Simulated assay, not measured.
Amino acid sequence: MTDAMLEHVNVTVTDPQATARRLTEWFGWQVRWHGPAKNGGTAYHVGGEASYVAVYAYPEPTDMPTGRLNHIGVLVDDLDAAEARIKASGIHTHSHADYEPGRRFYFDDPDGIEFEVISYA
């Protein structure tokens, strides 16, 4: 079986830059990356070497609730093997993408929790 580790959680906030600043002040974390994100929004990845919190904001003010979990990111060694196991359990995967520096896909579990599965291998 592939080794897997929690890599990140992604949450919606009103001001990702301000949230990132608070997280660095409170916990001594670093901004690992920031830039354009899904649906035209903006995200900051704040944390340490092995894991981070992705703080995301929509491009315009919206009625979407803040403080909610968007997805859980799981890092795996073998993306194809992980996807095969997930599909074997009857789950549909979606939003496959190759990007720098890796590959990813998403799926929703039976409780509606979205997972992002990532590999940098």
Rank of each mutant, 00 (worst) to 15 (best):
T19I: 11
F107D: 09
D78L: 04
I118S: 00
A81N: 04
R104W: 00
Y99H: 15
A84Q: 09
G47H: 08
L79I: 10
A20P: 00
A82M: 11
P101S: 15
R103Q: 11
N70S: 08
D78C: 02
W29A: 12
A121Q: 11
V55A: 08
H71N: 06
Y120M: 07
E7P: 03
D77W: 05
Y56H: 13
P65V: 03
M5W: 08
P65E: 13
T66Y: 06
G48W: 09
G112T: 01
A43T: 09
P16W: 02
V55P: 05
Y56L: 08
R22P: 02
G35Y: 02
Q17E: 15
G35W: 05
V31L: 08
Y120I: 00
T93D: 02
K87C: 09
Y44D: 05
Q17Y: 06
T14N: 15
L79V: 00
E83G: 13
M1I: 03
E49G: 09
I118C: 03
V31P: 04
G90L: 09
V46D: 01
Y56N: 07
D15K: 03
G102A: 07
W26C: 12
G73T: 01
A20H: 04
P101G: 15
E116Q: 11
T42C: 07
Y99R: 08
P101Y: 10
V117N: 01
L6C: 09
A18K: 11
R104V: 00
V11A: 08
P110F: 04
F27K: 04
Y44Q: 02
V9D: 05
K87V: 14
E100G: 10
R85N: 12
L75T: 07
G67K: 08
V46A: 03
V31C: 10
S95W: 06
S51M: 08
E100W: 09
H92W: 06
G73V: 03
H94K: 11
G28F: 07
P59H: 10
W26R: 12
V117Q: 00
G48D: 14
D3G: 09
T12F: 14
W29L: 10
S51K: 00
D77T: 11
K38Q: 14
L69Q: 12
P59R: 08
Y120H: 14
T42I: 14
F105V: 01
W26E: 07
I91P: 02
E116C: 04
W33E: 06
D108Q: 11
V55C: 07
I118L: 10
N10D: 09
G48C: 10
H94C: 12
P101R: 13
L6T: 06
R104N: 06
E83H: 01
Y52C: 13
H45L: 10
V55R: 01
